[in-house]
Structures are given as structure tokens and as C-alpha cells.
């Protein structure tokens, strides 16, 4: 393991300034549950670790007056799913957070870290995608919002600039009108990475439904939006969402599962999510 300097900025501006001091050679440290494993290999040798956990606003969960949910990038998975209001409003998100690693991991891993790490199997991405969440990124030149749907470029690659830091994830107020759910297939019942994970959001007002699937391509993917969804026709909508997902995913055979199994399980998770959402057993 090697890293030569550690800083604990107190503000976002300081963090951004530190990151631009050593572009490409500095890295943000949030929960550290992925970063410390990369450090252990000795192949990843950042000069500077910028620990963002001591920036007060980054550890906050707050609701704006317009009803947006703002999750600080350093909010841990456990913090997130322990928040009853968030659980009630966005069950897919908290279900996803609850399925990241073991409890010990959930105590450290952060929502910001999970998305910035950009592993194809991250459990927070599919829920954030179906809810059309936005990321707040701050660099020395200022702040910008990035739709999560445009954030991921490839395995472990995002559109984030080297000197930018994600400070918050915004779940728009509009998502509060959605019914959402998350599901995940693993090899054991205990903690494991997803063979397939998926989330779906149903908008009863607009009668639209959208899904997102992870672990079946270089980034999580979103389905096309199904329209004119008949809430009483889960039997038809499920396969339709499954077809929509299968159009987008591009799974491979790897150490965890075959492409065939991933495709079939994608379809299964889509059907299960739809059944849950349209039967009303999923929360809003």
C-alpha cells in the first residue's frame, strides 16, 4: 500500500484546491472501502489522499424547500437506509444501499464513493438512474450538476474531471411521485457483488415505467420509458420491461456468471420489479 500525503479539508473549496494541486495524482477518499483495496495492491499509488468526510455539508441528508433530496457525497449507506423519511420516499435507493457489502462495509461506504468508483455492479446506480438523480460536482472553476444518466462512461470511468469532487447527489422532488423498487441477484445470501441488479420506477400519474440494470455491461444501463402502462396488467408490463432491458444490456461471460444467465435474470428481475410496483407492494 502506498500513498504519501493525507489531507482533511474542512470545505469543498479546499478539497477542490487540493485536487488541482496534483491533477491525476490526487484522489478523493470517502468511505475508502474500494480505495483501500486498490492501495493494498501496490499498483495504485496516489500522491495525495483528500479525505472529504470532515466537510460538514458532505455528511448531511437534507430536503430542499422544493422537495429535492440532497444526499451529501460522504453519507454512508447505513446512514442513508437508516433515514426513515428517505426509506419511505425512495425505497429503491435505500434497498440498494442496504445491499452494498456487509454491515461493516455499509458503515463506511458512501453514496458518492459508490457512484464515483463506477463499478458496473454498484448497487446505488440503478435506483439513482430510474429516479433521474443529478450529481453535484465542484472543481476549482466552480460547480456543475451532472445527470446520473450521463455520468458513467466505462468500467471505473466517469465524466468527472480529475480535479472535480462530487459533493452531493440530488434526487429530484419529481421522483417523490414515483413508486420505486430495487432487486439484486447474488451467489450467496450473504454479502456479494451483484450478478445482476436492477431498479424500476413507476409513475402512476403519467403511467410511465422505466428500469435500469447493472452488472450487464460496462456501465449500468437505462431502459426506454414504457408509456401507457396499465397498472392492472403486470403480466404484460413485466415482459415488456424485460424486453426493453434486454435491448440495452450487453452482458459477458465472466467469473461471476454467464451472459445467458445474466440475460435471463435481467428479464426475471424486471418482471419481479414490475409485479411489485404494480401490485402496490413497493413503497413510494
Amino acid at each position: 500500500m502506498t500513498a504519501s500525503r493525507y489531507e482533511r479539508p474542512a470545505t469543498v473549496a479546499q478539497a477542490a484546491a487540493l485536487l488541482s494541486e496534483a491533477p491525476g495524482r490526487a484522489t478523493v477518499l470517502a468511505g475508502g472501502t474500494d480505495l483501500s483495496i486498490r492501495l493494498r495492491t501496490g499498483l495504485f499509488k496516489p500522491e495525495l489522499l483528500v479525505d472529504i468526510k470532515h466537510i460538514p455539508s458532505l455528511s448531511e441528508i437534507r430536503w430542499t424547500s422544493s422537495g429535492d433530496l440532497v444526499i451529501g457525497a460522504a453519507v454512508t449507506m447505513r446512514r442513508l437506509y437508516s433515514d426513515q423519511k428517505v426509506c419511505a420516499a425512495f425505497p429503491a435507493l435505500t434497498q440498494g444501499a442496504r445491499s452494498v457489502g456487509s454491515l461493516q462495509i455499509q458503515e463506511r461506504a458512501t453514496v458518492g464513493g459508490n457512484v464515483c468508483n463506477a463499478s458496473p455492479c454498484m448497487d446505488s446506480a440503478p435506483p439513482l438512474i430510474v429516479m433521474d438523480a443529478r450529481l453535484v460536482a465542484v472543481g476549482v472553476k466552480g460547480e456543475r450538476e451532472i445527470p446520473i444518466r450521463e455520468f458513467f462512461k466505462h468500467v471505473k470511468k466517469t465524466v468527472l474531471a480529475e480535479n472535480e469532487v462530487v459533493t452531493a447527489i440530488i434526487v429530484p422532488a419529481a421522483a417523490a411521485g414515483l413508486l420505486t423498487a430495487f432487486d439484486k441477484l447474488k451467489r450467496v445470501r450473504g454479502h456479494d457483488l451483484a450478478l445482476v441488479n436492477a431498479a424500476a420506477a413507476y409513475d402512476p400519474g403519467a403511467r410511465t415505467l422505466v428500469g435500469a440494470v447493472g452488472s450487464c455491461g460496462v456501465t449500468p444501463v437505462m431502459t426506454r420509458v414504457l408509456t401507457g402502462v396499465d397498472a392492472s396488467a403486470a403480466e404484460e408490463v413485466g415482459p415488456e420491461l424485460a424486453r426493453a432491458a434486454l435491448e440495452k444490456i450487453c452482458p459477458i461471460d465472466d467469473v461471476r456468471a454467464s451472459a445467458e444467465y445474466r440475460r435471463d435474470m435481467t428479464a426475471l428481475l424486471c418482471r419481479r420489479l414490475v409485479a411489485k410496483l404494480l401490485s402496490g407492494t413497493a413503497g413510494r
Partner: peptide, 11 residues
């Protein structure tokens, strides 16, 4: 409860 292997001592 945390995994001490994933926490840096400085943290």
C-alpha cells in the same frame, strides 16, 4: 462495526 483493514489509521 467496521473492517479495520478498510480504514486508514489517519482517518
Amino acid at each position: 462495526p467496521v473492517n479495520a483493514c478498510l480504514v486508514l489509521a489517519v482517518e
